[in-house]
Design a protein around this nucleic acid. Structure first.
Lengths: 183, 183
DNA sequence: ACGGACATGTAACACGTTACATGATTAA
DNA sequence: TTAATCATGTAACGTGTTACATGTCCGT
């Protein structure tokens, strides 16, 4: 699944320009998918060439014409076909977890700061998603709830278990600094 | 953070060849980071050129010589410097969640199958990680526990809330098929 | 006999990001 | 006046994957 499919998906919820697609992706999908202008605009042009979307150009004075795209029948079929493929496994790339793996190489203060930051971030994002669960379709609610559940679980885990990495980093520090081993 | 840093990290836990690095990544990091041979071998060569790792070649009869890499002092410093950067936000890419967003375009059976599959997968992975929590360093335990907590939270959420997407898909199906509207 | 583990490496390709180009309008 | 929002697009770049090349040994 690539940006092109994602564009088809967004358009299935309503016509939009490239710019608007980007914004909707940020609103709705940012937690589990990203896309930049540099990938969206070329994707739309290619989708148009392939007849999966069509485009109405709204002339605008003093700024580029706004090109509003809509799904064609073929586009909708392609989207459905694509969604029918069993989804591949999630890809996660977490610099935070990599850092935690090597916690014993870092000063304890640094580890703690990273965890604090992460904790705040997760709580903020969970709250943001919670606010979204009321005002939207069942699918949107489901997605928002899913995200919230995960952020909350991560935050809870961090609070309960942070001592595991913090104490290990402390030991390593004592080890290499010779703290408490002064003669 | 890229494959090069990850290689340094793995090497900080013990010397290894490219092949072994790949396997350790699969064991330990597969849940939140990926890397293929095609990226690891070039990375190691470049790290060697830059003096961050050094390499002892073990001659082997009838198969390519095994090149065992180890961190240099510079390499260790570079790794620590890299880890000290506050980690960027996690990147998640989930085809599953995208599919759920557009649940109303799919047959209910398909949705249910996707959720069942995901549920089994999460339960299996959680169990696998649970087994790992006993026999390893504090950092490894922390990471394994984190992964397990998230898989379990996701599974629990799916079981409790799957009706949200399943019923919506059903409604959409009734809508477009005209089921229950026969004359 | 066949696939999988061991072992390294390269080249073509895919995919996406970043930065740039262009430029008006509006709010702080 | 500075930044953000609106609006599209291209080119250079980075990073990683896939498939290929090469070959042995071991288990079934």
């Amino acid at each position: 699944m690539d940006v092109r499919t994602l564009c088809l998906g967004v358009l299935s919820l309503g016509d939009a320009s490239g710019y608007e697609i980007k914004k909707r992706l940020e609103d709705t999908f940012s937690h589990f998918y990203d896309a930049s202008f540099g990938s969206i605009y070329p994707a739309l042009n290619r989708l148009q060439k392939e007849g999966l979307v069509q485009c109405e150009t709204e002339a605008q004075s003093k700024r580029p014409d706004k090109k509003v795209y809509s799904l064609t029948v073929e586009g909708r079929l392609t989207l459905v076909a694509e969604l029918n493929n069993m989804p591949g496994r999630d890809r996660v790339r977490s610099e935070f977890l990599v850092a935690m793996c090597f916690a014993d190489l870092l000063p304890v203060g640094q580890i703690s700061e990273m965890i604090d930051q992460r904790l705040n971030q997760h709580k903020r994002l969970a709250a943001e998603l919670a606010g979204r669960e009321s005002r939207s379709s069942a699918a949107q609610q489901f997605i928002a709830g899913y995200g919230r559940a995960l952020y909350e679980a991560a935050a809870a885990y961090l609070e309960t278990n942070r001592h595991l990495v913090e104490s290990e980093a402390l030991l390593a520090q004592v080890d290499s600094d010779g703290v408490g081993a002064a003669d």
